[in-house]
Simulated scan of single mutants.
Amino acid sequence: MKKNTKVILAGSLIFMSILVLLITATPTSSGAEVPINHLNENGKEYEERYITTEGFLIENSVVWNADAIELQFDIQDEEGHKLSVYYHGVQPDNFSDDVIVIVHGYVTSDGIFEADKVQTRCPSVYEGEDPEDYDPDIHREMDRQLNIDDD
């Protein structure tokens, strides 16, 4: 076999290997984002499909089994539609009231959302300041103080 033929075959083999890895790894990351009320109304439609949804944690619904590393909880949207979630994994640190929970996983035949990934975010932390309340003098003073401290 010629050297060019070997290089082309090796390059093709590497390319095909990468392509197969990408195809097998991406189905779990390409799920649809579905609101809770739509899941409740059309749960059968989403069985066996990887989806993402989010809602506010209902704190008194949290059941944590540290021995089995199992977490069960309910989330609800702004209209009050609820979804029960089961997660086999570590409980997030800031798992408390007024936290938004983002879950990725599958809906089972009994209507439970089986999550394989759970994320949290606090809505108040991510809200921006009102631009009308911006005071440039405060920032100038802070900058001046920082420059004085550095000298």
Rank of each mutant, 00 (worst) to 15 (best):
M1D: 12
K2G: 15
K3I: 15
K3E: 15
T5Q: 14
T5S: 12
I8G: 03
I8K: 12
I14R: 04
I14V: 15
I14C: 15
L19A: 15
L19T: 12
V20A: 15
L21Q: 09
L22C: 13
L22K: 10
L22V: 11
I23Q: 10
I23V: 14
T24R: 12
T26K: 12
P27H: 11
T28K: 08
T28I: 10
S30C: 08
S30N: 15
G31C: 13
E33C: 04
V34C: 07
N37A: 10
H38L: 12
N40G: 14
E41P: 00
G43Y: 08
K44Y: 05
E45N: 12
I51N: 00
T53P: 09
T53L: 02
L57P: 06
N60L: 07
N60F: 05
N60T: 10
V62Q: 10
V62Y: 09
V63T: 14
W64V: 07
N65C: 03
N65P: 02
N65D: 15
A66N: 15
E70L: 14
E70V: 04
L71V: 05
L71H: 07
I75W: 05
I75A: 11
D77V: 04
E78I: 05
E78W: 01
E78D: 13
H81E: 04
H81W: 02
K82N: 02
L83K: 01
S84M: 06
V85H: 01
V85W: 00
G89Y: 03
D93T: 10
S96L: 04
D98V: 01
I100W: 01
I100N: 11
I102C: 01
H104Q: 13
Y106L: 04
Y106R: 02
V107R: 03
T108P: 00
D110N: 13
D110E: 07
G111Y: 01
I112V: 14
F113Y: 05
E114R: 01
D116N: 05
D116Y: 00
D116V: 00
V118I: 15
C122P: 00
C122I: 12
S124F: 04
V125S: 11
E127M: 13
E127C: 04
E127G: 03
E127L: 14
G128T: 07
G128H: 04
E129F: 08
D130G: 03
P131I: 04
E132H: 08
D133C: 02
D133N: 14
D135K: 10
P136V: 02
R140I: 10
M142S: 08
R144I: 02
Q145W: 05
Q145A: 11
L146N: 14
L146W: 09
D150M: 08
